[in-house]
Design a protein around this nucleic acid. Structure first.
Length: 279
DNA sequence: GCGACAG
DNA sequence: ATCTTGTCGC
């Protein structure tokens, strides 16, 4: 389930009375979350919204904000809370020999996803690709509604895999439902969230080789330091944090664990290979 | 009030 | 994430 983001935005713009103007923030709030302001701004640059160019002005004097809206982003938040309630936070798998990694690259309105499977010696044993049209923008906290469709299709393409590393957070999310958790619960497979940057949480006191990421009074993930950079690891689904950290450290050769790093490179290549040439 | 903000 | 020139470092 998702929502027609651009369609909802269009419906709001059509409500603006003749002569009136609104602000990006009021539109984002009408959509259900002020954090979608950037996404609204980006959407307005699209060809399909040029007709409404002059209807939005951040500095508007008396902006129109009396929108009739179902606030679609609110229902997406409810869905996330529902999914997060199903997360299994202990190791629920036989072995962790085949490690999967998945990532997505973007080009225009297309998502190029790649799921790679590595064996215990980090050798590639299988690769699965998926190209899907994307119709949902990037909004902090709602990444899964943009990426999950492509990610899930790529993952469904592999024949075997024990644990999947997803490029994005798992429980280290405001509603404990980042991309890794979203995908893990929907596909019912063990997943780990691997992210290069923080979404929520603060760093606690270093423990056993890792730094706890704290949010809402609990440990939601681990911060691993590697050289100058750091990587954020969190439970996605059907795995414990200690094991998620263990597998991450075991495959950490660079800034990101190998499965995710490899998937990232393959997704980038897939995009360059299939994206339409201009010249 | 201003800023934060996975990919 | 993507766009995108020149520039710094191994």
């Amino acid at each position: 389930m998702s929502i027609d983001f651009y369609g909802e935005l269009r419906r709001l713009l059509e409500q603006i009375p003749p002569g009136r103007v609104t602000t990006p923030r009021l539109l984002a709030e009408a959509l259900g979350d002020a954090r979608a302001v950037r996404a609204v701004l980006e959407a307005l640059k699209r060809e399909e919204f040029q007709w409404a160019r002059d209807l939005v002005d951040a500095e508007a004097e008396n902006p129109y904000g009396d929108f009739e809206s179902s606030k679609p982003l609110e229902s997406l938040r409810r869905l996330q809370m529902e999914l997060s309630s199903k997360v299994v936070e202990f190791d629920d798998f036989e072995e962790a020999e085949l490690l999967g990694g998945v990532d997505v690259a973007y080009g225009d309105d297309m998502a190029y996803a790649v799921c790679v499977v590595l064996d215990s010696s980090l050798q590639v044993v299988e690769v699965s690709e998926a190209v899907v049209e994307v119709s949902f923008p990037y909004i902090p906290g709602y990444l899964a509604f943009r990426e999950a469709p492509a990610v899930e299709e790529a993952v469904r393409g592999v024949s075997a895999l024990d644990v999947l590393m997803v490029n994005g957070h798992g429980l280290a999310h405001p509603r404990r439902c980042g991309l890794a958790t979203h995908v893990g619960v929907e596909l019912d497979i063990p997943t780990i969230g691997i992210a290069a940057r923080r979404l929520v949480g603060r760093e606690g006191e270093p423990k056993n080789g890792w730094i706890p990421l704290i949010h809402g009074g609990r440990i939601i993930g681990a911060v691993l330091k590697r050289d100058g950079g750091r990587v954020y690891v969190s439970i996605g689904h059907r795995i414990s944090l200690p094991t998620a950290v263990e597998l991450s450290l075991k495959t950490l050769r660079n800034r990101l664990p190998e499965p995710v790093r490899y998937a990232h490179r393959l997704a980038s290549r897939l995009k360059r290979r299939l994206s339409p040439d201009e010249t």
